[in-house]
C-alpha cells in the first residue's frame, strides 16, 4: 500500500493534534509519533491544504461546501477528510493510492470517535486557552488506545 504519514489538525486552525510518520517501508513500527521534528512539516502541510481548500471553495461559489479530497504532486498524494467540526484527517501516500477516503472515514469514525470522543479521560478540545489557538497549540492525542488502534490499522498499509 505505501502510506507515508498520518496527520490530524483540529479546528483551532493550524493546530496539529496528531502526527505519525513512517520512515521505513519495511518496518511498520519505524518513524515518529507526535514529534517536534514534524512541526514545520505540519505547518507546511496545513498551509497547503488550507490555501487550496479556501481557493476551491471560492471557485465553487456561494453557499456550497466543496471539500478538497486529494492533492497530488509528482511524488506523493495527500488524502484529506474535513469534518464539519473542523477536524482534518490527512494521509500522505504514494501515487498508487488513488482514493483513501474509506481509510480516512474509518480513522474518524472507528478510531478517533471511539478512543478520543468516547474516552472521558481525553479532551476533545486540545487548546486549553486562547494562546493555544491559531496554530500555537502543542497538545497532542497521546492516549494509548488511540495510538495502538492507529498502529494496528495503518501499520499493515505502510508497505
Amino acid at each position: 500500500m505505501a502510506i507515508y504519514s498520518f496527520w490530524i489538525f483540529d479546528r483551532h486552525l493550524g493546530n496539529c493534534i496528531f502526527d505519525r510518520e513512517w520512515t521505513l517501508k519495511s518496518n511498520q513500527s519505524s518513524g515518529t509519533t507526535n514529534s517536534k521534528l514534524n512541526e514545520d512539516t505540519a505547518k507546511l502541510l496545513y498551509g497547503m491544504v488550507f490555501s487550496l481548500r479556501s481557493i476551491s471553495q471560492k471557485l465553487s461559489g456561494e453557499g456550497s461546501h466543496n471539500e478538497i479530497r486529494t492533492i497530488s504532486t509528482g511524488k506523493y498524494r495527500a488524502h484529506i477528510l474535513c469534518t464539519a467540526s473542523g477536524l482534518w484527517f490527512v494521509l500522505l501516500s504514494d501515487l498508487k493510492q488513488e482514493d483513501l477516503s474509506h481509510v480516512l472515514r474509518y480513522l474518524y469514525s472507528e478510531i478517533y470517535v471511539k478512543t478520543v470522543v468516547h474516552n472521558w479521560f481525553s479532551p476533545v478540545d486540545f487548546a486549553e486557552s486562547d494562546s493555544e489557538k491559531r496554530g500555537q497549540g502543542f497538545r497532542k492525542i497521546r492516549n494509548r488506545n488511540f495510538l495502538a488502534s492507529v498502529e494496528r490499522f495503518l501499520g499493515p498499509m505502510v508497505n
Binding site: 478512543t115 472521558w120 479521560f121 481525553s122 497521546r142 488511540f146
Partner: peptide, 20 residues
C-alpha cells in the same frame, strides 16, 4: 472500555476509573 490515558499514567487511570 475506551477510557485510557497516556502510556505512563496507568496509576492515574486506575484511580480515575473508580468514580465511574
Amino acid at each position: 472500555e475506551p477510557f485510557t490515558l497516556e502510556e505512563d499514567l496507568s496509576d492515574q487511570e486506575q484511580k480515575l476509573i473508580e468514580p465511574f
